[in-house]
Design a protein around this nucleic acid. Structure first.
Lengths: 126, 126
DNA sequence: CTTGACCTTGACGCCGGTGTCAACGCCTAC
DNA sequence: GTAGGCGTTGACACCGGCGTCAAGGTCAAG
């Protein structure tokens, strides 16, 4: 199938697919006229990438997953490199959550300091 | 004082101060030779802005705080517009935290699905 | 032959807060 | 005079994942 059909089926834009190829993920073979030709397996790759992007992964993060699928594994996350990325991502997310919680506390503190009584309506702000 | 001294005292770069001015915050008066001239009050403004940026506010968010300080209030957060920004920011932060928690759960779920036993070492992943 | 839907590559725009460089002016000290 | 340490404006670079437009090639249907 060509890029338009794959894009429709995967729910992405052709531009995104070309970008993925430019980044070295999901490289298509070319027809005689220069058009990109994709197979069914590529649809799975795109869906995997989109799922990863949706949960905050970068394209760089998605690389091992694509490689894992292309290596024939049923799940993109079942290879050691993918698992490593999973772990790293979990750590990053935890860091961000901690940062946000600290910020939230800081902002809430500033608010209650600048405008006493403004935050009181809630209970668990101690 | 001129821009270099203010920058040193506030712990920011002259470039940042020019940018704040370009954005309409902390506009300096000009000396005869065109140099920016700042007063002590401006130091407080810069410090306020930096404190807000440090907790995730944008320059746009910082605007009411600067206006509040320039209006003579002791705290930049004690004006109604500032309080509104505080509240909005708290809501935004809470949203981000919720999003991150959902992502964390999703990633942890995918990891445990792709690699059963990888996540088991911890207890509170239910 | 022409239309029109599809494809190609290349390149700029976006967002925010700067860093960095260019090319120049001001002012003091030697 | 001149060195050099300050200031000025203007403009490009960055990051990521595309959107969007430009200018053109391909191919099937009418």
């Amino acid at each position: 199938m060509r890029i338009g059909e794959l894009a429709r089926r995967a729910g992405v834009s052709p531009r995104a697919l070309r970008y993925y190829e430019q980044q070295g993920l999901i490289v298509a073979r070319r027809a005689a006229n220069g058009y990109r030709e994709y197979g069914e397996a590529d649809l799975r790759l795109v869906i995997e990438v989109r799922a990863l992007l949706a949960v905050g992964f970068t394209l760089e993060d998605a690389r091992p997953f694509v490689a894992c699928l292309r290596a024939g594994h049923e799940s993109g996350g079942s290879c050691p490199d993918s698992v490593a990325v999973y772990r790293r991502k979990l750590a990053e997310i935890d860091d961000e959550i901690r940062t946000l919680l600290a910020r939230r506390a800081e902002v809430a503190g500033q608010l209650s300091a600048a405008c006493p009584g403004c935050v009181l309506r809630r209970r668990e702000d101690s």
